[in-house]
């Protein structure tokens, strides 16, 4: 063996950023390219939500609801797609990554685990957007939904903010699921219908009454959808809060969840190292 001075390798901020972005892209690649190879999945992912759109739209029609409500259903289906992606491909995914032994590989690599979560988010958003765009377009065409968008930039901006807050929440949940340690599947299952109900996926959230709706604002989807309903459809009476307040709410939620994700990840990492729980497999 030889004697050698320690080589100190301190990355510059730019280097560190580049390395982490590389890692994010590596992880996102699976969702941007890989997952889309399964054409039958793609088909099902587009068609399944169309069923629920059809069911809810036809139900509204059978009850002679105003025509904007068809549009609410479509908007709801769009957000539902992202929510399901957050639940299963973000929150529960980390749990499965551990079972596959990936989590260990991520924690061992010279990058921030946040980079992996960012990659998963970016990939998930891409993956879902492709599918949801197809679903929404088809749904809107089939049921002749009319959108009246006066300010497309505001709509896009709010949509983007909603996604940031949603995936921030997904990133936080990914770590919390692991800390909680229960079967991820149960949790994600629990957070489906109740959240659709509370966030007002098919109807103006106002209908739930003030206090319930206010509580539901903790789910980023609620604020995003309420704001979009006000901006995308003619009926101006449906809003729960002025759009400006909702934008502020989304910004705050986005910031809180991103910081929360960072903290939760740190906590998880520390806990895992203390308890030796990064893998479930016995080796």
């Amino acid at each position: 063996m030889r004697t050698e001075t320690r080589m100190e390798t301190t990355d510059t901020v730019a280097q560190a950023l580049r390395n982490n972005l590389r890692a994010s892209w590596g992880r996102a690649y699976v969702r941007v390219i890989g997952v889309n190879r399964e054409l039958s999945w793609l088909f099902l992912d587009i068609v399944m939500p169309l069923f629920s759109i059809a069911a809810y739209v036809l139900l509204y029609r059978s009850m002679n609801a105003p025509r904007e409500y068809d549009g609410f259903v479509i908007l709801g289906a769009l957000m539902t797609a992202y929510w399901l992606n957050v639940l299963w491909a973000m929150a529960a995914q980390f749990y499965w990554e551990r079972e596959m032994g990936h989590l260990e590989l991520y924690m061992m690599a010279p990058i921030s685990p946040m980079a992996i979560l960012f990659g998963m988010s970016f990939g998930g958003i891409f993956q879902t957007t492709v599918r949801a765009a197809a679903t929404v377009t088809m749904g809107a065409l089939i049921f002749g939904v009319h959108f009246s968008i006066a300010n497309p930039l505001a709509v896009l901006g709010i949509f983007f903010l909603t996604l940031v807050a949603l995936y921030g929440l997904g990133m936080t949940a990914a770590s919390l699921y692991l800390v909680y340690g229960r079967d991820a599947q149960n949790l994600s299952n629990l957070l489906q219908e109740p959240v659709f109900l509370l966030s007002g996926v098919n109807f103006p959230v106002k209908a739930l009454g003030f206090w319930t709706a206010a509580t539901a604002c903790f789910i980023p989807m609620t604020l995003g959808m309420d704001a979009l309903r006000q901006l995308v459809f003619d009926d101006k009476t449906t809003g729960f809060m002025p759009v400006g307040w909702e934008v502020l709410g989304l910004v705050v939620t986005g910031a809180v969840t991103l910081i929360g994700a960072y903290k939760a990840l740190k906590y998880l990492e520390d806990l895992a190292k203390r308890q030796g729980r990064l893998t479930l497999k016995w080796q």
Partner: peptide
């Protein structure tokens, strides 16, 4: 509870609210 109570009940409540706002 998740599978046999919470999910079915929430699903039904969505329909209830839809009925209320529509009619």
């Amino acid at each position: 509870a998740v599978f046999n109570l919470v999910r079915p009940l929430s699903g039904a409540l969505i329909l209830v609210v839809m009925y209320l706002v529509a009619t």
